[in-house]
Design a protein around this nucleic acid. Structure first.
Lengths: 339, 339
DNA sequence: CTGTTAGCGCGTTCAC
DNA sequence: GTGAACGCGCTAACAG
């Protein structure tokens, strides 16, 4: 038995009031050309009068089309993610799409992602900063919707990553070229491939410069927020460096916020940057300009944009062929002198 | 004629494979108790085997229920909005909801919002930082879905705002109590009620202190990003202050990022804070702690959280009664000494 | 140019 | 405990 108690006005109500059939209303709504000016305006009037608004859900179901992009991302309000979203948004705004954001939190990321998938499939999915396990790969393939990865890679999907090794390497080489010989690195206390790569870049650069690597050069704070990429972490790590590496004259942080924290510790100790200690951060944030921080620019926004575009093309079928893996090469950007 | 070409596996496929009807599958999916253990596990097996994933769209349509919150917001990646979203997210994560974000951009905000509404109604709507016109009020009432406003108010909807007058007033009074008599204010060059209120608070505080107000005390930069609330703006404005108000010893910025820019200008001029010039920013960002900036905390996150909760309660029908207007009172937070 | 009708994929009463 | 049938609101052939 029907349960006609829905309060919302539907396409039927409009049709009745305009004295036409629902398909005509639908045509008007979708800008179909085959509608006479008269009925068209009558329908529009009825819509106006009844304050009719279509249901995006019903429309999506009928059309098998979606008007939003799904983005699964850990802590989407964190600085890096935020930057990424700017890029994604830049692409999305033009086609008039909305963003369905699933915040994965910062723990149990995989579980959250799986729950999101179970909550219902989506038309296209952008996954940021999540290492994709074998099992997750299968799960993702099962939902059969175009998927694009950012910050992690898998042969099964289009992915966008950046070359962390070269990134840190260029930063350290820069410091070396400025005459530094005792360089430390601030890392996140949380293990990850990204982190390993960055350390690798650090090692390579030292090696290239003929400086002996020692694991003591790599220091971390205590992971607090954002998996160890926070101001607090940078601050703690820098304090450690100041205590245990009095000869150190330059520091590479593995994220921008860490670098900001490090600067605070340096300032607190009565030292100056870059005259006493040079600091280079990874990632590019606007603030760095005023804080006086050199950084490694990853063009995060651009990555977001490209990834969104890729996903869009996949969804529209404009793009066929196998998954691609695009690797960005970070550029060192000198905003403040970094001797 | 049907158009059976859908590639995705539906509840029918599962039912067929498990040798049951779709309603049984549905029951299993929705944790209905009235299913025998045997058929239940058979269904689950079929689901597993077929890699079945329900369609969130179809489910929403059938249930007349939604699993996401719609948030309409201008430039959602801007610092303030970002903070707000943290609060919203904090609430939303627990109920396992997703966020449908409509980025309103920074121009044609009203048009964008209207387009979003036309794209299809939603179950509940959170609108942040948009001044609601009379006409928009009607449009919003038409869609008949619970609506909560943040940063603007309208008698028709629940709204959360903060007392900008008292906020700036407390900041200025603090400076006065520290002995400052020549105080300037950095405003956004863009006109808004918020801005007017802040200036009003500035005036009131001066008046209270027996200091004559002069509109020259209120300085703006050239609006670049974010409607004049950017580091660049603060930087420019501060330069102006240093040039034209040599006697000035304290500054109130109307946003945190402006304050950061202002600090940069001060540093560049070879002056020190707070010994030469004290700076207080509006809003609270984490960075301020390391930059050494006192600020007026608006509890932005908390507002986001409260608003999200309110909306949720409205949607669930837990909360009835007329719309409420909740006004938060900003608190001055002394993080760095600000003489 | 317009109305009829059959789905889109799922939840949900009802009988059995 | 389970199945048949209807409806959620809309789009898209097809027939007129």
């Amino acid at each position: 038995m029907p349960r006609r108690e829905s309060t919302s006005v539907t396409i039927y109500d409009v049709a009745r009031r305009a004295g036409v059939s629902i398909s005509t209303v639908s045509r008007v709504l979708n800008d179909s050309v085959d509608v006479s000016e008269r009925t068209r305006s009558e329908v529009l009037q009825a819509i106006e009068h009844l304050k009719y608004h279509p249901s995006r859900t019903a429309r999506s179901l009928a059309q098998q089309e979606y008007h939003s992009f799904a983005v699964a991302i850990p802590s989407f309000t964190a600085p890096f993610q935020n930057e990424l979203l700017k890029g994604i948004r830049a692409f999305i705004r033009e086609p008039g799409l909305d963003l369905l954001i699933c915040d994965l939190g910062s723990k149990n990321i995989e579980t959250s992602l799986r729950a999101f998938l179970d909550r219902g499939a989506v038309r296209g999915l952008l996954i940021c900063g999540v290492t994709i396990s074998e099992e997750m790969t299968r799960d993702l393939m099962d939902i059969q919707s175009p998927t694009v990865l950012i910050g992690s890679s898998s042969p099964a999907f289009d992915s966008f990553t950046w070359d962390d090794i070269k990134g840190v390497q260029s930063a350290v080489s820069h410091l070396v070229s400025k005459g530094h010989t005792y360089i430390c690195m601030i890392r996140s206390a949380v293990e990850s491939e990204t982190q390993r790569n960055r350390i690798e870049g650090f090692k390579l650069a030292l090696e290239e410069a003929g400086i002996a690597y020692n694991s003591r050069f790599v220091v971390s704070g205590n992971p607090t927020y954002h998996a160890g990429y926070s101001e607090e972490d940078g601050y703690d790590a820098m304090k450690t460096i100041l205590n245990e590496h009095s000869a150190c004259t330059a520091v590479v942080a593995s994220s921008d916020v860490q670098a900001i924290g490090a600067l605070a510790a340096i300032k607190e100790a009565g030292l100056k940057t870059p005259s006493d200690i040079a600091v280079i951060g990874y990632f590019d944030i606007k603030t760095s300009r005023f804080i006086g921080l050199s950084s490694v620019n990853q063009g995060i926004q651009q990555i977001g944009f490209s990834a969104a575009k890729k996903l869009h093309d996949r969804i529209c079928g404009t793009l066929l062929g196998p998954a691609e893996h695009i690797i960005f090469e970070p550029k060192l950007e000198i905003r403040a002198s970094s001797h």
